[in-house]
């Protein structure tokens, strides 16, 4: 199944990735390949088999509602591309 140019651009936009013409071609081919492999898997008869959401069989892992120390404000903001006092500063977003 060959992905169209528009489909590749849509997926890139959802992931907030900028794409050059070369990228569209390159990743479009790779994604198409992956989808082709899923086409093969689709051929398997899965009638009566429960869908798998988890690869291992672990269930019911939960913690108690107890507070543990957080990072310091300095640590939290240490990797901020842009910092403004006690905040991360980012480009404007409008609701």
């Amino acid at each position: 199944m060959k992905l169209s140019r528009e489909e590749v651009l849509h997926i890139a936009a959802l992931a907030k990735l900028g794409m050059t013409e070369d990228d569209i071609h390159h990743f479009g081919g790779q994604l198409s390949n992956i989808l082709e492999n899923f086409e093969v898997l689709k051929g398997v008869d899965t009638e009566g088999i429960q869908p798998t959401a988890q690869a291992n069989s672990v269930c019911n892992v939960m913690r108690d509602d107890v507070i543990a120390p957080s990072l310091s404000q300095e640590e939290v903001l240490a990797n901020a591309p842009k910092r403004d006092g006690e905040f991360f500063r980012i480009r404007p977003v409008m609701e």
Binding site: L71, S72, Q73, E86, F88
Partner: peptide, 12 residues
Amino acid sequence: APPNTHVCPVCL
């Protein structure tokens, strides 16, 4: 709480 003080690597 002051901004960004109840934050850990999971939150980030």
